[in-house]
């Protein structure tokens, strides 16, 4: 078990991608979240998963969704860079959907909410013991849906309906359209549109997930994967044995773990500073610090 102040506890870290071409075709990077949940669903490790899909009524607007078949999971592939309150369905998944073994995908803060909810299930009756697999994603910050409209349509001068993929990488916000145009915005522009609550977040790589994954650290088309908990180890080992993923040691890929550590350190250091500034926000009065 590796214990790292910024990357959390993990038993292994690899570069990986799905061996399923169908999954890879529509996934953000290596298709880890979709691939792992689809495998867990087929094996009965989970009965369904809370994921984020696009609200049919508006382009690129995410909404939480309980997927109970691999086909439904495929709808959720890819990243939306906007708010999807997946925990809102955590109790509903065990009630209306009748799931006894729930899978969930979420950001680092959502993993924190999930674990708090399992330890302190104040309003989450019968939920704590039914969380079978939590897949966490790397997250630097998130954007309200209206910010995405502002960035894509105003700054990017692109109709949201025509966008086929968005990506944040290499210091830029990338917008790809169906006609092949590529728009890039420097992150200097995007910063002011970030969700304010992200600026006190002290987790970059979903330290509390069973398995966490993200693009940073690995080449295009691959993902970095941290396997963390007993449940995570169990399902990852089974998925590897079943040939769901091909992997490379993280030490052998570029840019590697150093970049993940660098970005995690930057995020957490910046946000610790923001918490300190909040403490003396007014004169003799500050803003609340949620961490006790």
């Amino acid at each position: 078990m590796v214990q790292d102040n910024f990357l959390g506890n993990y038993t292994s870290c690899v570069a990986a991608r799905s061996t399923n071409r169908g999954i890879l075709a529509g996934s953000q990077d290596g298709g880890i979240a979709t691939g792992l949940l689809a495998f867990a669903l087929e094996q009965g490790i989970i009965d369904g998963a809370i994921v984020s899909m696009v609200d049919p009524s508006e382009p690129w607007k995410p909404m939480p969704f309980v997927a109970t078949s691999p086909e439904e999971l495929y709808f959720a592939r890819g990243t939306r860079y906007s708010l999807s309150p997946n925990l809102a369905l955590i109790k509903e998944a065990t009630r209306s959907y009748g799931l006894d073994k729930v899978g969930i995908v979420g950001t680092p803060c959502q993993m924190q909410g999930l674990r708090k909810g399992q330890l302190y299930p104040i309003g989450l009756r019968d939920v704590p013991d039914k969380i079978a697999l939590a897949v966490g994603i790397f997250c630097m910050e998130n954007f309200p849906y209206q910010s995405i409209i502002q960035l894509v349509e105003d700054h990017g001068n692109t109709k949201l309906e025509n966008v086929v993929k968005m990506d944040i990488g290499k210091g830029k916000f990338w917008i790809y359209t169906e006609r092949g145009a590529v728009v890039q915005l420097p992150l200097k522009i995007t910063h002011k549109y970030e969700q304010p609550g992200c600026h006190v977040c002290l987790d970059y790589v979903s330290n509390l997930a069973d398995v966490s994954t993200g693009s940073v650290g690995t080449p295009d088309g691959w993902s970095t994967v941290f396997v963390r908990s007993k449940k995570g180890n169990d399902v990852w080992a089974k998925a590897m044995a079943a040939g769901c993923f091909e992997t490379k040691p993280i030490e052998e890929v570029k840019p590697g773990l150093d970049l993940v550590t660098k970005l995690a350190t930057e995020k957490i250091t910046k946000n610790r500073k923001s918490l300190e500034e909040r403490a003396k926000f007014g004169i003799g009065k500050g803003l609340r610090n949620p961490y006790i």
Binding site: P64, S82, L83, S84, P85, N86, L87, A88, L89, I90, K91, E92, G106, T107, C109, Q110, Q112, G113, K116, G117, I122, G123, L124, V127, N142, P144, Y145, Q146, Q195, P196, G197, C198, H199, V200, C201, R278, L287, R288, P290
Partner: peptide, 30 residues
């Protein structure tokens, strides 16, 4: 008052899930 006014909400949805009377819906993540 305690979360959104303080710049702390990050759109997880735990509040909506925990409400016993379904008084909370998530609109645009909040």
């Amino acid at each position: 008052v305690g979360v959104i006014n303080q710049g702390l909400c990050m759109a997880c949805g735990a509040c909506a899930a925990s409400c016993p009377v379904r008084a909370i819906t998530m609109e645009l993540g909040k």
